[in-house]
Amino acid sequence: MRKLGQEGLDSILWYKLNTWCKNYFEEYSKCDVVDNNITESFNAWIVPARYKTIMTMLEEIRVKMMKRIGELGEFSNTWITDISPMSLKIFQENIQKSMQCNLTWNVETGFEIKHHGITHTVDIVNRRRSCRSWQLRGIPCPHGVAALHYKNLEPIHYVANCYSKETYLSTYAHFIQPMNNMKMFPTSNNQIVKPPKIRKLPGRPGKVRRKEADEGRKTRKLSKKAVVMTCRKCGTQGHNKRGCPARNQVGSSQSTKPCSKARSTGPSQSSEPSSQTHVLLFVTPKCMLYV
C-alpha cells in the first residue's frame, strides 16, 4: 500500500493488522468480513422505542426481539439445501469459476490449480489452499471445487459446519417467553427512581446518524467535493459572479461620477440656433454628459 502511494496510511497502520487486514485473519472464525455494522443496524431498528420511557422502551424491544427470533427460526424452512442461501450463492459462483481452472495432480492429496495465469496449491484432505480463501470463508474456492470434482467428490459436503441448517437452528433454539401486560406486573417496595429533569436543548433534535466526512451519501446528485468555484464574469477561480471584485469596482465607479457639471454644460436653452456639435460621452442613471 505504501508503494502505491495511498494517503492516510499512518492512521490505518496504527491499528493491528490482524484486526482489519484479511491476510492476517485467524482461520477459526470462517469469516472474511472486515466491518461490523451490527450495532448501527440495531440502533436504527429500535429508533421508535429509543425516545420513550425506560420500561416502555424495554417492552417494545422485547416484543420486537421475540418476533424476530421466531421469524428467523421459521426462515430455515425455505432453504432448498442444508446450507444457508448466502453460502449457497457463493458456492454456486465458485462452481462456475472452477470450470476455467486447469489442474495437475501429484497422485496423492496435492493439486496445482492454474487460473488466469496464476498457480495455487490445494490440499483437499486438510482443506487448505495457498491463498487461504477456503480457510477464511469455510466454503470451497474455485480451485478447491475443481480438485474435488477431479476426485469425484461432492464439494457441498466440504462446506464448513457453521453454514449448516443444524447450526442455524441451534442459534435460534432459545425463544423469549411471553409476558403479561405492564399493568399486571407485581408492585415493588423499592424506592422509586425518578428520571432527571428534561432540559430542552437548542435547535431541532436530530434523529439521523451523523455520517463521516468520507462516507457515501444516498443521493442521485453528483458530489461537489474538491470542485473549485469559477467566476462566470472574470473567469477567476475562488469566487462567483456575485462576489466578483470586478463587478464591485464597476458599480462603485458609476455611482461616484459627478453630475452637476454635466447639467451645466448641456445644450443652450436659448431660442437662437447653435452651430456647435454636441457629442454624447456617457450616460449614467442620473445624468448625461455632452461636449
Rank of each mutant, 00 (worst) to 15 (best):
H239G: 02
H239P: 02
H239K: 02
K241N: 05
K241M: 13
R242I: 06
R242S: 10
G243M: 02
G243P: 00
C244W: 01
C244E: 02
C244P: 02
C244Q: 02
C244S: 01
P245V: 03
A246I: 03
A246M: 09
A246Y: 06
N248H: 12
N248F: 12
N248C: 03
Q249M: 12
V250W: 02
V250H: 05
G251F: 02
G251V: 11
G251Q: 12
G251M: 14
S252F: 01
S252L: 08
S252P: 00
S253M: 15
Q254Y: 15
S255Y: 10
S255P: 00
S255C: 09
K257N: 05
P258T: 09
P258Y: 02
C259G: 05
C259R: 01
S260G: 10
S260T: 12
S260W: 01
S260R: 14
S260E: 15
K261I: 10
K261S: 11
K261T: 08
K261C: 08
A262P: 03
R263V: 04
R263S: 10
S264I: 15
S264L: 15
T265C: 04
T265E: 04
G266D: 06
G266F: 13
P267L: 13
P267N: 10
S268V: 02
S270F: 01
S270R: 04
S270K: 13
S271W: 07
S271H: 14
S271T: 11
